[in-house]
Design a protein around this nucleic acid. Structure first.
Lengths: 259, 259
DNA sequence: GTCACTAAATGTGCATTCAAAATGCATTTG
DNA sequence: CAAATGCATTTTGAATGCACATTTAGTGAC
């Protein structure tokens, strides 16, 4: 047993219930046969749910990078057997969120400086492409919605609401991806973004950097409304590069904290 | 049961052996303690082997796009139980090579035109980045090796050896990725490349297109040796765009064949 | 002959069980 | 007393078994 107080051995014992699956399994009784919406019902399997929940636990920081994940503990926590959990861990391993070692179990993939320096350029390339495609495909309604999000984000900036700012920030980048109309691109970007989101680097953003980021977002909106793909590409890329600096400083602090 | 003769029901019964894992499990008896090579033994698990083998079966075309994969059949073929196979299928589903439907099993993801139009831009962005990074990080020895590969490829072009040409072609693109020194980028690119490699579009390449591709490769080598990242980026991107045209024509033919 | 409905057969999802490897601990030995 | 060895416990990898969902075959009514 690991006695390091930093380790996350001993899971948060919130009874994160899986009961939700039952509702999604409910049979649909249709009011108006022939007029139904949404196509075939998407049934969820246990390992899919588990993948989502464990991913959320990792991304939200409930499971700390570097900590071991004993299968039994997670199984008890969720009240499921090992089979679906193991399937979920395989999936998360592909996403790069957990690392599997044969016969030695799984651990949450630690975030290293090298990781950041590898992932950010790739995200930059993907987001640049997203910007280019978005300019080609976005419609006026979407731009309006985006503008509203942007305005709200700016107001959060002025009121100093960091957390809310970040929430909207993510929505904006998601909306740009949606406008790019490329599911493959979206999936790839999301995977990498999840790996990075685990860093709780928000607190690390200086006032100057925050101001700069907000200004960059102003330019992003400008380029979008003008449908200037090239401009948007380069702004997004630069925006991400600046973000990387913040995250790198954060990770360096983390390393200093535990010598 | 599917009676379509195109479907791959009934697997190729080559006893694709799994025995290889045994050799890697061998204990090391060292002749000179302290001078031993190779570090810790990398043990492989069954589901890892299965992932690799099934992926190869899909990419190589032994399992046709769109065909169903009954778990039992594959289990019998490999002589394993369902558990590790199912884990492997989950992994391949993330890679986009198979599609899983709850309670309905797995099928090989079909390649659609929309797929191509989605994936190629993403690959283009990734390869452009790879080119940029490669120019920054490649060393002289690697350039030399690459030049040798290139020369051999050109000779295959002149002798009309299409298959050999393509083999070297892949090696060249792999070498560029290696020179980029970015494992994340390499992994992402490989995943998408595997999805596309399933198309047996080689035969579809016209003489004109082949000539053009070879000329593009000439420019690639030029840009690399001059370490001109920007130039290499744009050539690689264009190279891939041209390739996409060939593949699109191939896929359209495929669609015409089965009305 | 077609459609609706039911029952059997097939195939999948998950829990359980068995086997093998790794970890921790006590004992032994130099 | 320290290091190494052997044993017991824990944990993981893979196989088996069972329940349920889906598909298919079959029956009968219109």
């Amino acid at each position: 047993m690991n006695h390091d107080p930093r380790s996350s051995e001993g899971l948060p014992d919130s009874e994160t219930c899986l009961e939700t699956q039952d509702s999604s399994r409910a049979t649909v009784s249709m009011a108006h046969p022939g007029t139904m919406q949404g196509g075939p019902i998407r049934r969820r399997t246990l390992h899919e749910d588990l993948t989502i929940m464990v991913r959320e636990m990792i991304v939200s920081g409930q499971l700390l990078p570097g900590s071991k994940i004993p299968e039994k503990e997670l199984c008890d926590h969720f009240g499921v057997s090992r089979t679906p959990l193991r399937e979920a861990l395989k999936v998360l391993a592909i996403d790069g969120l957990v690392t599997l070692e044969a016969n030695r179990g799984a651990r949450i993939t630690p975030i290293t400086r090298q990781d950041l320096e590898e992932v950010f350029p790739v995200m930059g390339a993907l987001e640049a492409l997203a910007g280019e495609l978005a300019c080609r495909n976005i419609n006026d309604a979407e731009i309006e919605a985006l503008q509203r999000l942007h305005d709200q984000m700016v107001s959060y900036y002025h009121s100093g609401s960091l957390k809310e700012y970040f929430a909207i920030n993510e929505q904006i980048h998601e909306a740009i991806l949606t406008a790019a109309r490329n599911a493959t691109l979206t999936a790839q970007y999301r995977t990498l973004a999840a790996r990075m989101r685990r860093g709780r680097y928000m607190a690390n953003m200086t006032a100057a950097r925050w101001k700069q980021a907000t200004s960059e977002h102003e330019q992003i909106m400008q380029a979008l409304s003008e449908r200037d793909g090239e401009a948007l590409s380069s702004i997004l890329k630069k925006h991400l590069e600046n973000k990387m600096v913040t995250v790198c400083e954060w990770i360096d602090e983390q390393c200093d904290d535990k010598p």
